[in-house]
Amino acid sequence: MYKLEVNNIIKNFASRRVLRKVSFSLQTGDSLAVVGKNGSGKTTLLKVIAGLIRASKGTVAYSGPNGKLSRDELQSSLSYVGPEMTLYDALTAEENLKFFATMRGLAWHLEESDKLLSKMGLNGRGRDKYGAYSSGMKQRLKCAVALLNEPHYLFLDEPTSNLDEDGKQIVGDIIERQKENGILIIATNEQKEYGLAEKLYQLDD
């Protein structure tokens, strides 16, 4: 059983307070939709939880079956997909997958990569450069990279942005699988996506 506890997170940017005492706890099988208007702090909250930026105050605690997760354990069990992150434009999709699989300490096989690309609707496009992909295809490949390590914690920021109906279906499948096997947090301002998660956290302006 994996757990995530977010306690009284406050985040200030200069004099502006973006997050005001955000607290919740989740465990394996839980899913949470973080909702709010533009600028309400959804992306900031996800980044704080993922450890990409530091909170001004408050704590984020991760634990697994053997207690508190070490830095390496957390790195190998957490994935994040956000609109402001990109993969390497100059590398092909396969090269990107191989690089991030190695970084995560995973054995990389071409067949696995083909299977993953096919699951994301990118079959036959593995040798194309990421920079030559459309924005929707880039979003699909970012999801593929996030799924490489079969994460216990999956954080998706605006996961369906730039995606067509097929792409949204693929993301929907990812979300359903994650809800069964791990912890999922989605940040969205699409009302249609509120129902993708079982719990809702509303951020104030």
Partner: peptide, 16 residues
């Protein structure tokens, strides 16, 4: 500038 540092931070060990 290419915004690839986010995913590199999340996946790679700083020493590597």
């Amino acid at each position: 500038e290419a915004k690839t540092s986010t995913v590199l931070r999340l996946t790679a060990s700083p020493t590597a």
